[in-house]
Design a protein around this nucleic acid. Structure first.
Ligand SMILES: [Mn+2]
Ligand SMILES: [Mn+2]
Ligand SMILES: [Mn+2]
Ligand SMILES: [Mn+2]
Lengths: 226, 226
DNA sequence: CGCTTGATTTAGTCATGCCTAAATTTGCAG
DNA sequence: CTGCAAATTTAGGCATGACTAAATCAAGCG
């Protein structure tokens, strides 16, 4: 007879992963993709998906062998957790002086445990920010997200000025390197001629051009239509 | 063969409860007392105590039918969690404008999930405070606690001036009432003659005397030797 | 259209923690 | 000293979530 109640950390993480992997088109996500993303065995993923689909108010729509999609309730919860995560990152960075490469890990844990009350207090204290320190949009309380089209710096056309909209927050070392080079959201960049396999020659904020390693360039996103 | 690793929320709560119930004399705590304090069945408590005692590095010393005491490792962890709790209360109150009757619930959950790093940042941001908003001492990183002898206001002698050292933080309604009456740590009080069953006639900070309900008076503690 | 193969699900376990019901032990009163 | 009542432990279960090994399904290939 399933159960109602709130979500656990494990459930939250599945919902976030499904939202991230399903992309803007809301495509179905396979068990295998989730298993890889969450570092959990595919067999365990199947079990969890069946449970999430069998809830009184299901969090996912599941057809065996064809992957899952979020239900409205699942999407709502996923966005709430992402809101917690990004508000926490902004807060740790702005109020507690965390360096931007350390906020992710702390937020990843706390996002599941802060109350609505604390979420609101943090948002108010920060002046209801629109983005986290890495440039990712913070969903509004109603779930609205300011979506943008973004292109990897490594694929941005040569000679066209662009502005960094966000950077990947998964690799602390890469983040430190980006900060050192001035590759932060809001900075304007220009790709110089002289491409070599994967690497990119970029002029950051009008400075002398620098050559970026492929891993770095892949983690920097340029906003289209700025 | 047991397990090593970190502690869970359940384990943390047991350790805190044992520390609180064993008092300054470090007396043995019974399963029943823990069951009542934690709102868990005595049978479940026994199971957990056996596990905590069987750990590679035991958190408790357990003799069946005779109660438990904390091991050095157990005491260390309990004090760390209490430090987290009180720092969080201070932080929520001072930095995020939480009213003092709402900090406890939020801290009770978060205390198990903040990293050492966040603990340190919060302490630094607050200037390494010695007490939480209710006047309870914040253990130092090394576990040192500034112990004081305290007496319930309801048992404080008539006519002897005293200073409020702390108040119980368990009952939000009582805390709101205390705040309204000015019964906060640091305030001086004087018991006036005119005792009735349980209630107390008290002069707060030199104001006109007020009569306190027994539940309120029992939650206000006066420091001895101030 | 069958086959092989990789993806996915099922079956059977395990650890954590809590619960109820049924022993057991303790300690105190008579 | 006995016995009883209260405290405590044991036994047996359940829910969550993850894992391994063993099916089973789905697709593309010949
Ligand atoms: Mn998480
Ligand atoms: Mn981020
Ligand atoms: Mn707790
Ligand atoms: Mn407190």
């Amino acid at each position: 007879m399933t159960k109602s109640s709130a979500s656990t950390e494990a459930v939250d993480d599945y919902l976030k992963a499904i939202l991230e992997l399903s992309g803007p088109a809301d495509a179905r996500v396979t068990s295998n993709a989730l298993a890889a993303h969450l570092s959990i065995r595919a067999a365990s993923v199947t079990g969890m998906l069946q449970k999430l689909a069998a809830l009184e108010t299901p969090f996912v729509l599941y057809e065996k062998h064809r992957g899952v999609r979020l239900s409205p309730a699942g999407r709502r919860r996923a966005l709430e957790v992402i809101r917690h995560h990004r508000l926490l990152e902004r807060f740790l960075h702005d109020v507690l002086d965390y360096p931007w490469d350390e906020v992710h890990e702390e937020a990843e844990r706390l996002e599941h445990y802060i109350s609505e009350r604390l979420e609101d207090r943090i948002a108010a204290r920060l002046g209801h920010p629109g983005h986290d320190p890495h440039g990712h949009p913070i969903p509004a309380k109603n779930g609205a997200v300011a979506e943008r089209t973004e292109v990897e710096l490594s694929r941005w056309p040569c000679g066209v000025p662009g502005t960094i909209s966000s950077v990947s927050d998964r690799d602390p070392a890469a983040l430190r390197e980006m900060k050192r080079l001035g590759l932060v959201p809001g900075t304007s960049v220009l790709i110089e001629p002289g491409a070599r396999t994967g690497s990119v020659l970029v002029r950051v904020a009008g400075q002398t051009p620098t050559r970026l390693a492929p891993e770095i360039a892949a983690g920097v996103l340029i906003g289209e239509g700025s």
